[in-house]
Write a protein that binds this DNA or RNA. Structure first.
Length: 556
RNA sequence: GCCUCAGUAGCUCAGUUGGUUAGAGCACAUGACUGUUAAUCAUGGGGUCCUAGGUUCGAGUCCUAGUUGGGGCGCCA
């Protein structure tokens, strides 16, 4: 039994990650680095890190200094929840050194030996030396590795390492305050782990988005998509952390549904019936009683109805998962499979719902600006000029609100010539949304929609003509969120369902929510991909979802 | 689903009113180069011009159909 976390970390670090070089080297500096402290340190703190306390063990392994700081964050976390009896050292693995960590704390690593693994983004060989731009996936930026003839054993081979190859590198980190990059690695050893032959499609040059879409399994190795999908991860995390901090309960609503009354569009049929043999047997009708669930089933188009039932028990809840629409939509803003966040709040009205939307959007924007500054900088320069200023403006400004009636008035009085003439009581066309977001110069809520163009579950306003629905429009992504206060009055809900030909028998359980302890409540759906498009400036949904599914496209 | 534009080297593209052997940059290969950073320079290899049919003495170029991709609209998040 090994109760020494540092010792364990040392062994772990010499495992698969440093496998390229076998055993760890003896400590060249004979020193140690305070692991726990450096992990917590923010860059500005790191700069004033006392030089004397820095010592290093095996090349990239950070050891600890005293008993108080002997545990890593993860170990302390475990300790807090599982007091006693647990062997932390056997569970917690010291994370490998990454390029991200070096960029955060490079001052502290000056002159130290480091070990990295990653992929060659570019290799510029010259007669007696050369430069590899290494990206290890942990950080947007590459790190420059300098190799010299005589300083490494396999100079001639390394010169030939091609773009895309995976390599392991050992070398000394040198601070280079006068160069383009603040530091670089002087290599002592470079090993090829995986070659990348000359037909590797991703080259250090501009590729079209269309080409990269057809290489969706490789495109995240480019600057653009590396940035997009890291932001996607951060946006997702921000959503959970925003709602979790407000004590929302995360509900996993079903993917397969037996109801086709969700009313959000065409659905994908789920079946185990053997369609070929049905066709061959010449069957005129399909007996869904013989299907897997004993009834016709589909992929969900929304978890809203189910999550409403959880809101009637937990008060504040949300779903966050994939959603499927079989619409034959061919636009930059639609996909057949996408991710949606659907918060639902009890004892709340439309105003509360709008406040939540605004807070959530701002929280996400702030999180991405804080956590992905390099990525945002890149989007600002190469994707959407002025993106950063746009996002900062979003944070600084309250969202505007307009009723549907007033929005139509604005359009009518705008003097613009629209292809679709704006008419009171009718829906907004895409060109109308675009005009409104320009007019208000940022996100705008459009509320109180005509009841005939909205869903049956939306609460009828006192005017009897409109419902308490709201769309949040943003420049570029169009409708980012769509929400409403729900109709909690059973009689009103029933008459609306009758009006709109929604079958009561499938939704008996939904109606029960109004019968037993019903209360006013509201919620909304946010398209994850539309949020990502908004914060990155990337204008095609197919470029913000890892493997996009659209009509006639299900490759990968 | 409707409208529209495009498909030429591994990638990004040029290719004139139809005319001889279809070009460039990057990538790749070989060489040069003592600090490059989408390095640079020299040399070289690399093409079913999306597919099928048609017009023509002759088609990368014109016509028809198909196919794949882009953009706009509708449906929505």
């Amino acid at each position: 039994m090994d109760l020494d976390p540092a010792g364990s970390a040392r062994r772990n670090a010499c495992g698969p990650r440093s496998g390229a070089f076998g055993r760890p080297r003896p400590d060249p500096q004979g020193g140690r680095l305070d692991a726990s402290r450096s992990r917590e340190a923010r860059p500005e703190e790191t700069r004033s890190f006392p030089e004397g306390s820095l010592r290093i063990a095996a090349p990239h392994v950070v050891k600890v200094r005293d008993r108080a700081s002997r545990r890593t964050d993860a170990q302390r976390h475990f300790k807090r929840y599982f007091q006693g009896g647990i062997n932390m050292a056997s569970i917690v693995q010291e994370p490998a050194l990454t390029v991200r960590k070096l960029y955060q704390e490079y001052q502290a690593f000056g002159g130290k030996t480091v070990v990295l693994s990653g992929w060659v983004r570019n290799n510029r060989g010259q007669k007696e030396f050369g430069f590899i731009d290494l990206n290890d996936g942990s950080f947007f930026e590459t790190i420059q590795v300098v190799y010299e003839d005589g300083k490494i054993e396999n100079f001639k081979d390394v010169q030939k390492f091609r773009v895309g190859s995976s390599v392991a590198i050992e070398g000394i980190l040198e601070l280079t305050p006068l160069m383009k990059q603040p530091f670089e690695i002087k290599a002592r050893k470079i090993d090829l782990l995986g070659d990348s032959p000359e037909d590797y499609p991703i080259q250090p040059k501009r590729h079209s988005r269309e080409f990269l879409r057809e290489n969706a399994h490789l495109r995240m190795r480019t600057n653009l998509f590396s940035a997009v999908f890291r932001v996607r991860s951060e946006v997702s995390f921000a959503i959970h952390s925003f709602l979790n901090a407000r004590d929302f309960v995360y509900v996993h609503t079903p993917i397969i549904t037996g109801s086709d009354a969700e009313g959000a569009g065409e659905m994908f049929r789920v079946t185990t019936l053997e369609l070929e043999s049905l066709v061959k047997s010449g069957a005129k009708e399909i007996d869904f009683g013989k299907d897997f669930f004993g009834k016709a089933t589909n992929l969900t188009v929304s978890g809203q109805l189910q999550v409403e039932s959880y809101a009637m028990a937990y008060r504040n809840v949300y779903t966050f998962g994939p959603t499927f629409r079989a619409e034959n939509s061919n636009t930059q803003r639609h996909a057949s499979e996408f991710w949606m966040i659907e918060p639902e709040i009890a004892f709340a009205d439309l105003k509360d719902d709008m406040r939540l939307q605004e807070d959530m959007v701002k929280y996400i924007v702030n999180h991405v600006l804080t956590r992905c500054p390099k990525e945002i900088e890149f989007f600002d320069s190469f994707v959407e000029k002025g993106l950063k200023a746009k996002l900062e403006h979003v944070l600084a400004t309250p969202f505007r609100t307009v009723t549907h009636h007033d929005a139509i008035e604005i359009l009518i009085k705008s003097g613009e010539t629209f292809e679709n003439t704006p008419v009171q009581g009718e829906d907004l066309a895409t060109e109308h949304e675009k005009y409104l977001t320009r007019h208000f110069n940022g996100p705008v809520f459009v509320m109180d929609w005509p009841k005939d163009i909205k869903a049956f579950y939306m609460r009828l306003n006192d005017d009897g003509k409109t419902v308490a629905a709201v769309d949040l429009l943003v420049p570029g992504s169009g409708e980012l969120c769509g929400g409403s206060q729900r109709e909690e009055r059973l009689d009103m809900l029933l008459s609306r369902m009758k009006e709109m030909h929604v079958p009561e028998k499938d939704l008996w359980w939904y109606l029960d929510l109004r019968r037993y302890g019903g209360c006013k409540h509201a919620g909304f759906g946010m398209g994850l991909e539309r949020m990502i498009m908004y914060v990155t400036g990337v204008d095609n949904i197919r470029d913000v979802i890892p493997f996009p599914r659209t009509p006639r496209n299900c490759e990968f």
